[in-house]
Simulated assay, not measured.
Amino acid sequence: MSQIGNAIEKRDQGPAAVIEQYKPELALVAASHVKVDTFARLAVGVLRQNEKLATAASSSPGSLMSALMTAARLGLEPGTEQFYLRPIKRKGVWEVQGIVGYQGIVELIYNAGAADSVVVEVVKRNDRFEYVPGRHDRPIHEVDWFGDRGPLVGAYAYAVMRGGAVSKVVVLNRNDIDRAKAKADGANTEYSPWRTDEEAMWLKTAVRRLGKWVPTSAEKLALPTAAASDRPALPAAPVIDDTDPDDEGPIEGELVD
């Protein structure tokens, strides 16, 4: 177990007390826009609403704090679709696992200030979907919102950058999604979001691939002034790494690890 895990075990008085005790450490790693008191209250609230998660946090407070440290570093809200907290059993011991959600990756893209909008959608069998690279700058996707859309068949993501240019369009079919799921840690366990929130995980897989092509940042970067608006945006520092065990592995690319 890590040094922080060993220290937590010695000081543990229950998950809520551990979070309170380690707020100074959370403050040291948190993105600048994170209000640590609010962050801690959110985390405690999630534990109180989920008995299994609370049991895992009591069993392994070190894993709880490891997950919360990651959420704080990325500036994401724990226990939401930005950053899932789930119980997972490893070698007979319940632990807390932190998983960046698709809304969390979208937030990291917006933080970098280079994108005006991020579009990430699933495609279902009865939708009309058309995208030909070189002919279309973005997909044509028509949905009957009040009819039977059928099962999931794919997902896509792209960003409209400042100035109007469209980023690379990521399009994934079911086989692409299945390959990503096969590499995910514990994807078929009871509390995995692949089982509890499958559509969100399809969205996440698409927007995570988009992270190869657009800047991301844990910090909310200030937009350029009007005088500098014609200058190209600088790439933000990489923030997504392989600490998320439910991903298909670290992103490889110019902007994101």
Rank of each mutant, 00 (worst) to 15 (best):
K183P: 02
V119A: 13
A54G: 02
A228R: 13
I105V: 15
D242E: 14
V100E: 08
S63R: 07
L203V: 03
L172M: 15
A27V: 00
P232D: 02
R73A: 15
T216I: 08
L68N: 07
Q21G: 08
E190W: 11
I251A: 08
S229T: 07
A180P: 01
P15V: 00
A206L: 10
S66W: 10
A67Q: 11
L42I: 08
L26E: 02
P87H: 09
R138M: 10
R128K: 12
R208W: 12
A16R: 08
E219P: 11
Y156C: 06
V118G: 08
V46M: 05
D144P: 09
G154S: 07
A67M: 03
V36H: 07
D178S: 14
A218G: 14
I88P: 01
V214Q: 07
A40S: 11
S63E: 05
E190A: 14
R73Y: 03
V239M: 05
P235I: 00
V143L: 06
M201F: 12
I19D: 11
E130Q: 12
D246T: 11
P245M: 10
D116W: 09
G101I: 06
M1D: 14
D244S: 07
A16Y: 01
A114D: 05
E142S: 15
T225C: 04
D197E: 10
W202E: 10
D247Q: 10
L210E: 07
K10Y: 08
D185W: 15
E130F: 03
F83T: 01
A222Q: 12
V214M: 09
P245Q: 07
W145P: 10
S2I: 02
L108A: 07
V34T: 08
S66D: 14
V153E: 00
V106N: 13
K183T: 11
V120D: 01
A115M: 08
G150D: 00
R41A: 14
G211K: 06
P235L: 11
K204S: 08
R41D: 13
E121Q: 15
T243R: 15
A184W: 04
K183V: 09
